[in-house]
Design a protein around this nucleic acid. Structure first.
Lengths: 339, 339
DNA sequence: GATTAGCAGTCACGTGGGCTGAGTGCCAAG
DNA sequence: CTTGGCACTCAGCCCACGTGACTGCTAATC
C-alpha cells in the first residue's frame, strides 16, 4: 500500500526531476519541499515507491528518477492542470483570432501551442467528409483546361486542374456547371462523390467526354478527406531536449516527418474524447520510445473529430502541456463551430 | 602560386573529408588517390595550400580540413556537377508528375530534394504578383457571411471569409459579383488590388457597405504575394549531421522555423540567376555559421522568380547537392511553364 | 628544381588509478 | 512510525602516462 505521503514524494520527484534533469535525492526533497519529516523518512518512502516500480535509481549511489509507470500515476492522479494565465488566454484569443482561413488558423495554432509548451506541436486537419457541397465552380484557363473548384458549406475550398481532350466554350461550361451543381449541391462529400461518379455513366449527350472528365475530377476531390494531413511546428524544441531522448531523436524526427506514425497514434488516442496522454514505452510500437504525447480532440460540431497535441520527451512538464493543449483545443472547437 | 597538382590535392581533401568527417593526412591521400608521388610531396603541396588558407589543421599533429575559402575554391573551380543517374531523373518525373495542384507539387518537390541530397530542403512559393485575375467568385455561406474566392490565370486560388454587417440575398450577390468581375478581371494582382480599393470609395448606392467590405477583402487577397511562404522538409537530416554544426543546430533550426531568415538569404542569392552556393561564414550575418546553402532559382516564365535549395553543414557534398537542386529546379520551371 | 626518404617533434586520445562526494540502506534508539 | 548515525557504493573528475598519427625539416637523389 502506498501512503498519502509517498505519493506526495512521487509528485515532488517528478516535479524536481522535470525541472532539473537530475536524479532527485532524499536530501534535495526535504530542502525544497516542506514535508515536516527528516531525510531518512523520505528514504523509507522512496524505498516503497521503488518497490512499486514508480521510481528507479540509475545507479546504486544516486537519487531516483520516475519510471514510465511513475509518470503515469503522476498524470492520472497527481498532476494539477492549472488553468493558463490571463495573459496566455489573451494570447490565444488575439493570435488565433486574426486568422483569415483554415490553413492560416491551423498554422497559427500549431505555432502557438509549440510556443506555449516549448514542445513540438502537431495539428491534424479537420475531416470534411460530412460537410456538404455548397457550390461547384468551373473556370476555363485554356480551351482544354478547366479548373474545378469545390466549395463546402464549411468554407473549405478544394481545387483541381482537369485536362480535357476536347475544347469547351464558355456556354458549354456554363451548362456543365449547372448540371454538376444540380447533381452535387447539398449532398455530403461522400454522397456527392458517389453521385458524381454515377453522372460519369450517362455518356449519351454532347460533350459527354468532357462531363465525364469533370465529374470524375470532382468526385475525386470530394473523396479527399484532408484529415490525413498534419501541420507541425517547433521541431527546434525537440532538438533542445535532445539529451532526454536516449540518443535516437533521429527516429522521432523521422516518425514525425512520416506523418503516418502520428496519424495512427492519434487514431489510437481517439478513444479518449478529451485530453489523452501516452507515456514513453506505451509508444514503443510506433518507434517512439522515450517519447510522450499529450493530445486533445477538437471538433467541428456534427463533423468528424480531429486532434492536436504535443510530442516531447518522457521527461516533460505534463501539467503545462495538458493545460495548453486543452485550452487551445477548446478555443478551436469554439471558433470552428461558429463558422 | 598554387600548382595544378595542389588543387587536385585540395579536391582530394575536400572529398575525403566530406566522406569521412576526419582530418585528412598525407598518407591517406596517397593511399586513396593515385597521384604518382610520395607522401612527402603531398605534404609539400599541403603546406602550400595551408599558406593560401585553403586548408587548416585542427591541431598540430593531425591531418587537414578544408577552410571555408577552400570549399569556395572547390565549389567554384573543382567540383564537377555530375548529372543525376537515369533512375534519379526518372524519380523526379514520376514523383512530381503525379501532383494535382501547386500545394502538392511544392510539397512533393521539397520532400524529393531532401531525399536526393539527404539534407534539409526548402522551397519558396512562386510569387503571383504579376499573375492576372481570371475570375472573382462570391459564395454565400450565411446571410452575413460571404466567401470571397479569387482565381488567377495561373490557377492559383485565394479564399477569404468576409463578415458583413447586413444581410445580402442571392440576387444582390450576383450583381456584386458581376460588378467586381468587371472591375478586376484581366488585371494583374497588383492593379486589381488598386482598382478594388478604389471601388471602395464609391459609396453612393444600395449595399454600399457590403460592396465596400467585399472589395476591401478582395483587394487584401490580391495583395498577398505568397512568395513569402516556405515549405520545408527533411529536418531529420539536420539532426543527422548534428556533429558538423559546432553545437548550435538549435540556432539553425530556429532560423529555419523563422522562415524570414531563409527568405532574406534567398533574396541575397537572387542575383545569381542559376545555381548559387553560400558557404559557412558567408552566412554568419544570418546567424548561420557552419552552415551552407545551395540554391537555384526556378521561374514561371513572365513571372517573378523564386528559389529552392538545401541547407546543411559546411561539410556537405556540394557536387551532389548542386546536381540535385539544379535538376529539380529545371523540372519545376518546365512544368510550371506549361500550365 | 622537383621529389623522396628518414627522422625528430608535437599533441589528441585512450587507459588506468586514485580521490571525492552524493546518496543509499540498515540499524538501534526515541 | 520517525530519526540520527554509520558504513558502503559507485559515477565523475583529475592526472599521469603511453601510443600513434601526423607534421616539418633536412639531406640525398633523380
Amino acid at each position: 500500500m502506498v501512503s498519502e505521503r509517498s505519493l506526495a514524494v512521487l509528485r515532488a520527484i517528478v516535479q524536481d526531476y522535470v525541472a532539473s534533469r537530475e536524479p532527485v535525492g532524499s536530501k534535495t526533497i526535504v530542502d525544497r519541499h516542506h514535508f515536516g519529516v527528516s531525510a531518512a523518512t523520505i528514504r523509507n518512502d522512496m524505498a516503497l515507491l521503488e518497490e512499486e516500480e514508480l521510481i528507479a535509481a540509475p545507479h546504486t549511489s544516486s537519487g531516483r528518477i520516475p519510471t514510465d509507470k511513475g509518470y503515469r500515476v503522476f498524470v492520472d492522479q497527481l498532476a494539477d492542470i492549472r488553468p493558463l494565465s490571463a495573459a496566455q488566454r489573451h494570447a490565444i484569443e488575439t493570435f488565433l483570432g486574426e486568422s483569415n482561413d483554415l490553413d492560416e488558423l491551423l498554422g497559427r495554432t500549431v505555432r502557438l501551442v509549440s510556443q506555449l509548451t516549448r514542445q513540438l506541436a502537431v495539428v491534424q486537419y479537420p475531416s470534411f467528409a460530412r460537410a456538404r457541397v455548397r457550390h461547384v465552380e468551373l473556370v476555363s484557363l485554356a480551351p482544354t483546361r478547366v479548373l474545378c473548384i469545390l466549395i463546402s458549406d464549411s468554407g473549405q475550398v478544394e481545387q483541381r486542374l482537369a485536362e480535357l481532350d476536347q475544347d469547351v466554350d464558355e456556354g458549354t461550361l456554363a451548362r456543365l456547371r449547372n448540371r454538376l451543381n444540380e447533381v452535387a449541391a447539398g449532398l455530403t462529400m461522400e454522397d456527392a462523390a458517389i453521385a458524381l461518379s454515377a453522372e460519369t455513366e450517362h455518356a449519351d449527350r454532347a460533350h459527354a467526354a468532357v462531363l465525364h472528365t469533370l465529374a470524375a475530377t470532382l468526385a475525386d476531390q470530394a473523396k479527399i478527406t484532408r484529415s490525413d494531413r498534419l501541420v507541425v511546428a517547433g521541431a527546434a524544441n525537440l532538438v533542445r531536449t535532445e539529451q532526454d531522448f536516449a540518443g535516437n531523436i533521429l527516429g522521432v524526427m523521422e516518425a514525425i516527418e512520416e506523418q503516418v506514425v502520428i496519424l495512427r497514434l492519434f487514431g489510437e488516442m481517439a478513444a479518449d474524447d478529451g485530453i489523452a496522454v501516452r507515456i514513453g514505452r506505451e509508444n514503443a510500437a510506433f518507434g517512439l520510445g522515450e517519447t510522450s504525447v499529450v493530445s486533445s480532440s477538437f471538433a467541428v460540431p456534427g463533423r468528424d473529430v480531429s486532434r492536436l497535441g504535443v510530442v516531447g520527451p518522457t521527461r516533460m512538464d505534463y501539467s503545462q502541456s495538458m493545460a495548453a493543449v486543452r485550452a487551445v483545443a477548446r478555443y478551436l472547437s469554439r471558433t470552428l463551430g461558429e463558422s
